[in-house]
Design a protein around this nucleic acid. Structure first.
Lengths: 356, 356
DNA sequence: CATAGTATCGTAAACGTTTACGGAGCGCGT
DNA sequence: ACGCGCTCCGTAAACGTTTACGATACTATG
């Protein structure tokens, strides 16, 4: 195009309309795919918009139609979380986006500052009306945020199950099934004294995990021994500490289930300092398979899942609860327990000699 | 307060004004701390706003004053990035927020979808005017985004240095200084054949790193051997691959510098499979100390820095380039090379026998 | 030809906020 | 009494967009 039209930064839809000698309303309809506009003029409008680099001002649009086309993912970057969350959030974000982008929805991450109360932060974000819907993560055993969002009538889903009475959409990893599988496998290898590392049971994950552990033991007729349940952070340091405490026990376990794969690094280090070889003298099983698991020595047996696909699921759950999209994502149930798959390693690949 | 005023969700500033029998303009001024309003009425307004839970609608405000009070941190969650970034971004986010929150600025993270061109994504975000300023990360050797942001006249800073001609604010880890320090240390321990893992030199980091490596060798009068430079991903898998390629060399190195701490896990595994013990037969030094480094076996020697404080620095750099804040953050230079500190481990704690 | 229907477009009113402008009241000095 | 400055507040116009409504021209139908 040799004539006129320098592609300078557009000011607004008004300039675009003037440039086309079309009314501002028609331009808007053309851009938004409304039916009552000539296909011919629509083409012209789209071409001009592309050429002049016009993109609708989000504030104006949101103000008018009360919607932002943005979905927020709130994360609490607490100190502990930061150390553990690893790339979990970034990966799940990819899954979320792969769904949202089909509907021209943008995802933004809302990191709650360390020094701000998550509840207050969320309240602020909701009141500002900067997102159409929300995904909240790291749900607590009792979490005021559920009520807040329900009262504000803003659609939301949780990454992490809820055990409270309120019924809202969530998706979560199947820690219950996984701990069952782990115990079964260890018992089949001859183990009877199986230790676990557990996070705080304030958080839903911890509660579910411990309950599953209890029931699994019960199923095999193994007595529950509180001494074998070690509270520790889900970090390398935490794994080191777990090993440390277990080593100080009189009646030591022959197997351990770690709740987070990073812990294995510290655990390995500590027991090997005591001359105990994982995968020979003690069995180790863990969750949340990460690329590093198979490079540890011995390779760590753990449970894999596609965190990306979990994000996809969560996105669909959320959309199914939003009026504007619910008919596209019909659902019977809005709570999903996400399965994991066992990846055998070397860390538990031995049969316990039933000497004792 | 026993009478009236049910704390229902506010509709807007108009309702708040009616409830107070004050004009809407005065209410706005009171809330925004404008000078020409009676201290008495300001108190009343603030109290009522608090009680009724009024928070200004962001869209309306942005539309009027052309500013959003939001700063965006764009991250590219490419496949490779996700695997490597670890909690880097979340940690730096904490540092950014600790500064921004003092100015009532909110930080949101803008994750560019895998399947979208980062340039196009950024263009979209800029055009939508949803942020006042931007921080971009993972800058490429040549990165069109600089020009885009400059032309759009939107303040920005980069997490990662720029080697292009344009002068814009950035902060970056001192990979140059760090590789020098690593080489010095290894040479002092008697090493002459020092291998490195290098990322692609498209990315600035890779380029800086390799240049530093070259100069350090030169300073010690050691010839540069291309065979000792292994391109690999910054992951466990990449570390494994580095070891694999080095083992196949005729003239094997006695030391290796890994660019990312995760790689050590795969590296350890591979060399130990060949009967080579890190910290005894080969020295290993790495960057980006993570909590796991000291739990590896042997504990990894690597370089630590406070990523949080890097975020603080970057935030101040950005604010200093924003007209509204620049007098609060006066600066001579807007480019910062962020230092790292050596944390000695066991992985290079031996003196090379100069037999050969 | 008259009428109804359809396709396309222009007009103007919202959305919630900020802010320039002016006005009212008051004190004070001349 | 008058004017001036100051403090405080109300009015109304913007910001950029969407959309309900009506207007116009044209087509089909009687």
């Amino acid at each position: 195009m040799a004539h006129g039209g320098k592609p300078r930064p557009m000011k607004g839809i008004r300039q675009l309309a003037e440039h086309l000698d079309i009314s501002i309303g028609t331009v808007s309809r053309a851009l938004n795919g409304k039916p009552d506009v000539n296909e011919e003029t629509r083409k012209r409008v789209l071409a001009a918009a592309e050429q002049l680099g016009y993109v609708a001002n989000q504030s104006g649009r949101s103000l008018r139609q009360g919607t932002t086309n943005v979905i927020g993912l709130m994360i609490q970057s607490s100190r502990e979380t930061v150390e553990n969350s690893d790339n979990f959030f970034l990966t799940v974000t990819g899954g979320l986006q792969s769904v949202f982008s089909r509907h021209k929805l943008d995802l933004i991450m809302l990191p709650c500052p360390h020094d701000e109360d998550p509840y207050e932060y969320l309240k602020r974000m909701v009141a500002r009306r900067v997102v159409d819907a929300l995904i909240i993560s790291e749900t607590q055993r009792v979490d005021k945020r559920f009520d807040l969002l329900a009262k504000a009538k803003i659609p939301f889903a949780a990454l992490g199950r809820s055990l409270s009475g309120t019924q809202h959409p969530w998706a979560d990893l199947d820690f219950d099934g996984v701990v069952n599988c782990a115990v079964d496998r260890l018992v089949a290898h001859g183990h009877r004294r199986i230790a676990v590392s557990a996070p705080s049971s304030d958080i839903n994950l911890g509660f579910v995990f411990l309950e599953g552990y209890r029931r699994a033991l019960e199923r095999h007729g193994i007595a529950y021994d509180p001494a074998l349940v070690i509270r520790a952070k889900s970090s390398e340091q935490g794994g080191y500490q777990v090993a440390d405490e277990l080593l100080s026990l009189e009646n030591q376990p022959t197997a351990v289930i770690l709740i987070y794969e990073l812990m294995a690094i510290g655990f390995y280090r500590r027991v090997m300092e005591a001359g105990i070889i994982p995968g020979r003298d003690i069995a180790v099983v863990s969750f949340r398979e990460a690329p590093r698991a198979k490079f540890l020595q011995p390779a760590l047996t753990c449970f894999r899942t596609s965190v990306h696909d979990l994000g996809v699921e969560l996105a669909e759950i959320l959309l199914s609860s939003m009026p504007a999209y619910s008919q596209e994502y019909p659902r019977k149930t809005r709570q999903t327990v996400w399965p994991l798959e066992l990846i055998p390693g070397e860390s538990d690949a031995f049969q316990l000699k039933t000497a004792k």
